[in-house]
Design a protein around this nucleic acid. Structure first.
Lengths: 127, 127
DNA sequence: CTTAACATACGAAAATAATCGTATTAATAT
DNA sequence: ATATTAATACGATTATTTTCGTATGTTAAG
């Protein structure tokens, strides 16, 4: 089993951008970050370099402008973070998290149908 | 609206203990913490004093041994943390979180029934 | 060619969180 | 009464994360 490198908050922010936009330069990432909050260019650069050291991203250094890409898939990272979140916040009870999340959720009938389908499948598998 | 004081990781650990065991002394909290990992007594004390400053806990100083109590309810804190987690990790999509959590979940038919009931209620409310 | 714009590298400061040592005081046991 | 145990207070250290300044090299424009 590979050791899980859980991203810090800023690292996750950057990963989100890479997942959404695909492989990108520091400049691009920094511009997108700045749509939400002010971050200096070299700050973003530095974090992305650290992420490279940690093996969280890889970069193509073929051109002057390096192009960065996330190594882990969004899904996998989410699952890892979810587990740890459930552990810390819900004392390990995924079910409690789901219930509470459902309560917060703006109800949308299409998605609820979708959910029911998933639950039915789980039930079948259970038999 | 009151300003949300989101706990740090160690603070949350302590809050969990206060929620589970009710109002407790530093000694008690520290002993419970040490069932999982080694923490010095004064470390726990210090964090609980900081939490007092932040207004996250209140303490009864009537006796030599102070008794601490969580101010916020577990539910409320969980909701606050959940919102921020969904924002950071699922780009705001609570539904995606629920789906993924369901996938991780060990299927237990009783809980699944419970879930379906909740969904049905949500659907009714939706009409 | 020289200047301006733009890129990486990297050390170091600043901010935040966690840990602990020491002082002091209070309670208990011998 | 004296020594031991146990409690709080609090400054200081350490660790981690974030931010940024400066050096340096590269490309593009005038």
């Amino acid at each position: 089993m590979k050791k899980k490198n859980t991203p810090t908050e800023s690292e996750l922010e950057i990963l989100q951008i890479l997942w959404q936009h695909g492989a990108s330069s520091v400049r691009t990432v920094n511009e997108i970050l700045n749509e939400n909050r002010e971050v200096g260019y070299t700050t973003t650069l530095k974090i992305m370099q650290i992420m490279t050291d940690k093996g969280m991203v890889i970069r193509d250094t073929g051109q002057r402008t390096h192009i960065y890409e996330a190594v882990a898939q969004e899904n996998d990272t989410q699952k890892t973070l979810l587990d740890s979140f459930v552990e810390k916040t819900y004392r390990g009870s995924t079910m409690r998290l789901i219930m509470q999340a459902l309560g917060q959720q703006e109800t949308n009938s299409k998605e609820l149908e979708e959910l029911k389908k998933i639950i039915d499948q789980l039930e079948k598998k259970n038999k």
